[in-house]
């Protein structure tokens, strides 16, 4: 139950940030995938099953706000959420740097899967915008690791 509430709040927060990015600038949407960040953090915090479900929900939201093929984004975000939950329990991601590397690897994987599916299934090219989109996994990983570290410190303070 707690996981579902956290998921709902996570989804709302992602939609909120996504809505906030638009007025800032168009490139902000390209270089920062808010939903990938949310999936990485939620999967790592709540485990593989919750991460996968959260990824599927976020995928549907991305596709609802997109003119592309419906169901496409979920195919990269669902395994992303699952792997974030599964792998984070198998390896040590206690330091900020390790968290960043872990998130960067997953973000690159999700980006590659999404790009491949967009080209193959969606039959459309990626919005390169002078290569800005290539920064997306790195920026997403930085944002995810900073937020995750913040959550971890708050949790640690509460436990003390």
């Amino acid at each position: 139950m707690r996981s579902w509430i956290a998921g709902g709040i996570g989804v709302l927060a992602a939609v909120l940030v996504f809505s906030l990015l638009r007025p800032l600038s168009a490139p902000a949407d390209l270089i920062m995938d808010v939903f990938s960040v949310a999936v990485l953090i939620f999967g790592t915090l709540e485990g593989e099953v919750s991460g996968a479900v959260f990824g599927a929900v976020c995928g549907l939201i991305v596709d609802a706000f997109s003119l592309g093929v419906f169901g496409l984004a979920g195919l990269s975000l669902t395994p992303g959420g699952f792997l974030a939950g599964y792998v984070s329990r198998k390896i040590n991601i206690q330091s900020v740097f390790r968290t960043f590397v872990f998130f960067a690897v997953l973000a690159v994987g999700m980006f590659a899967a999404w790009a491949g599916l967009t080209v193959l299934v969606g039959r459309s090219l990626l919005p390169w915008s002078g290569g800005l989109i290539a920064l997306r996994p790195v920026v997403s990983a930085v944002a995810a690791s900073v937020i995750y570290e913040g959550i971890r410190r708050i949790k640690a303070r509460h436990e003390r």
Binding site: D29, V62, F65, L67, W114
Partner: peptide
């Protein structure tokens, strides 16, 4: 809002 996958669509 703008397209979540490609802002030019």
């Amino acid at each position: 809002g703008i397209d979540a996958a490609n802002p030019y669509k």
